Amino acid sequence: MSDLSWSQILAVMAAQFLPVWLALSATFALSHRLRRRLGLYGKLFDSPVGMIGLAIVLFWVFTAIFAPLIITHQPLAQISGLKNALPGAAIASAEAGEFGHYLLGGDSLARDVFSRMVMGAQSVLAIAPAATAFAFMVGITLGLPAGYFGGKLDTALSFGANLVLAFPVILLFYLLVTPEIQNTGPLLLGWRASIPNSMAAILFAFPILFFTLLWQTRYFTNPPRRNLFVGTTLVLGLWIYAGLAFNADPTGLWAMEPNLLNVFVSVVFVNAPTVFRIVRGLTMDLKSRDYIAAGQTRGEGPWYLMLWEILPNARGPLIVDFCLRIGYTTILLGTLGFFGLGVSPESPDWGSTINSGRKLLSVFPHPAVVPALALMSLVLGLNLLADALREESLKD
């Protein structure tokens, strides 16, 4: 079996991504047909920049979803003789039914670079959007009352946010992963909680609080529906909360490995103050509008006005910032992986892969260049998407 040329490599890679192409085609066809009913998302189809950004982002989203169908080898599998193999290298010992080439070459441990790049998308897209969403719930839950009520509450919360923002990010991550910090923490109910677990116990409670307030204020005059939504939120929320924060889910469905918990908590902790400041500023601007005065005249409560009047009218800037912040988080995760502070060392996340390939960058660049290009393209797509969303939101 001979090595593949670059044209053959590209053709085989295109075939491997067939599930992604089909999913992209179906998504764009359906979205274009319903674009007039899809609000801000539908308006992206009038922006070439937005379409390009959306296509890049959805490409990696579908790659993460269909990764088991796309990869040609297991990301941890090592094949003798393919250490630092060049792209298109043939596998001399390939058995029947086994893929016969390393499409993008092998790394320093003779693992398939193409498969690790594909599986790395799962690592990034499993953490970045979820951690960003948690950070937004923390920032929104604290930013709304700070901007609406002002006074001592605003002063105290703003001081805390500025204090966190003044702390060096990388140093924070170094502190959270050290054994001394891992084994140090308060004694809760006879169990020694590490500092990351203690932070998780606080930060992960905000989504429960956010949705409870959301349903309570929306259906206050309809007790049966309010009780249903609030009860469901508390049951599901506390179940997920116990599993993620304390690894106490008896079913094992909701759980985080210690390394992943450290990364997740740190990302939320770092991003939440910035979201808080954005939401606070928007709230201070919007609370003086006429529709807020009209709501106060009707006798609406402060939390109803914050969650159902101010927040919907602030959705444009927040959606744009959400996309940008996912990009920042992606870069941050890559940086952490590069410094060995990310998830487990054998994980195929892009940052760790770049770090392992940089030592031979001048001789065998492909193990580091491939995940670097993947990381760059995802961040580029998110930035283009955010720019298009900003332009479209300003037209409203």
Rank of each mutant, 00 (worst) to 15 (best):
F159P: 03
I202R: 10
T335F: 06
M376C: 13
R298E: 01
M117E: 01
L253E: 01
T297G: 00
Q16Y: 01
V49F: 09
L104C: 02
T155E: 15
L214R: 11
L282R: 06
P196W: 03
L54S: 07
A294S: 08
T274E: 11
L125T: 05
L360M: 09
W303R: 15
F28D: 05
S47R: 08
T27H: 08
R277S: 12
A15K: 15
A248F: 07
V177A: 06
P345K: 06
G299I: 00
I127A: 10
A200R: 01
R33G: 02
I181Y: 13
R315V: 03
A64T: 02
R111D: 07
L54I: 08
G147Y: 14
Q78V: 10
T141I: 04
L44P: 05
S115H: 06
L82K: 15
T233F: 03
I79L: 14
I170T: 12
I202D: 06
G281D: 00
L305C: 00
Q78S: 14
F59I: 00
V369H: 13
I79V: 15
L144S: 09
L253D: 02
G39P: 01
I71S: 06
F159K: 11
L228G: 03
V370S: 12
T178F: 04
G327L: 06
V138D: 01
R218C: 03
G351M: 09
F66Q: 08
G299S: 05
L214W: 13
G106F: 15
A314V: 00
E346L: 08
M376V: 08
L10N: 00
W254E: 01
G143I: 07
A23F: 07
G252T: 04
C323R: 07
T353K: 13
Y148S: 03
I181Q: 11
A133D: 02
A166T: 11
W254N: 08
M137Y: 09
G106N: 15
A368F: 07
N247A: 09
L187R: 09
D107Y: 15
Y328F: 07
V57Q: 12
G106I: 15
V57G: 07
A89D: 14
L333S: 12
R33C: 03
G357A: 14
R37V: 05
T72P: 02
E257A: 15
D349P: 14
A193F: 11
A121M: 10
A121R: 13
A131H: 04
G342Y: 02
T251K: 09
E180L: 12
L34H: 04
P312C: 05
M284C: 04
W6A: 04
K287S: 01
I195S: 10
V369Y: 12
I91K: 11
G316F: 08
R325E: 13
A23Y: 13
